[in-house]
Design a protein around this nucleic acid. Structure first.
Lengths: 151, 151
DNA sequence: CTATGCACTTACCAAAAGGTGCATACTTGT
DNA sequence: ACAAGTATGCACCTTTTGGTAAGTGCATAG
């Protein structure tokens, strides 16, 4: 915790500081958050970013094994986008059995750091989130089984 | 390719997938970040969360005007999910011209705070992000204009 | 000689996400 | 009377996203 925060790590004091919407005519980002979201939207991107941040240069295969359930297509695709967006750097060693690894650029590293609080939040509230999800899932399952219920 | 097999839509029936992961018990979060992402994935959710965090109880109409380009359908939908996930609270005043407002639950408030660094990151790197996006967009546009791949 | 792993690539598809527009029930303003 | 505003619901449709399965070229293990 730091003393000078850009944000409002204020107590239950309600209402965060007035971060007004930026009606700028740039690419049309409504605010910083919006800009960030454009870059990390993608099912696996935050995870990839975070993983590479932890392990430093990571080989494709290792990444694939680490990010469970990701397919080659997806992993490659997201990796390419992250690369195009200047967040990760791809290094091809041009060796005979292919050897490539991915690392973060400074920009990527800073973004990964901004991701930390989200990670912490998830860790701290995981039980709560899991519970809420179960409720939601079971209720929707019931809805499906019974057809629809009207009022 | 065999000439006797062209079935595109094969009803997989109940071929009990070899998936050992049981989603019915725990959502199977791989890490905190994963858990968080399940809750805020949605084009407008982080934005909604952030706006409501800033403005305190916010009426539907105000929110809609604040989050630009969002449609009624989307806004309502995401709001409902956020509510189901225990992040926002909906208050219906049951008045004749409909009057409803949305506020954050403590959980929602804490998540909104975890979002702050992302917001800052975006603000700080907005120019950079905008630049990279322009590059990417123009190059892909050129690819499209100059012809497709394969036939 | 075949299998396997590496790092991808491609084609094809299904599902989810998102958008548009009309409808509702009621009130207030013109 | 009529338009507009309020907070949604719903049907229909397009776009985006994600997944599967196969293939590629090379090299080493068996």
């Amino acid at each position: 915790m730091s003393s000078d925060h850009v944000g409002p790590t204020v107590p239950p004091e309600e209402t965060l500081p007035p971060t007004e919407i930026n009606p700028s005519t740039l690419p049309g980002f409504t605010c910083g958050l919006d800009a960030t979201l454009r870059v990390i939207s993608g099912k696996w991107k935050p995870l990839i970013l975070y993983f590479v941040a932890q392990d430093g240069p990571t080989r494709y295969g290792a990444l694939r094994r680490a990010v469970r359930d990701v397919s080659d297509k997806m992993l490659i695709q997201q990796l390419k986008e992250l690369e195009a967006d200047g967040l990760v750097k791809r290094t091809d060693y041009k060796e005979i059995p292919p050897r490539v690894d991915y690392s973060l650029t400074p920009l990527g590293r800073s973004l990964a750091e901004a991701l930390v609080p989200l990670c912490s939040w998830g860790t701290e509230n995981m039980a709560e989130v899991a519970r809420l999800f179960e409720e939601r899932d079971t209720s929707s399952r019931n809805l499906r089984r019974n057809g629809q219920l009207s009022t």
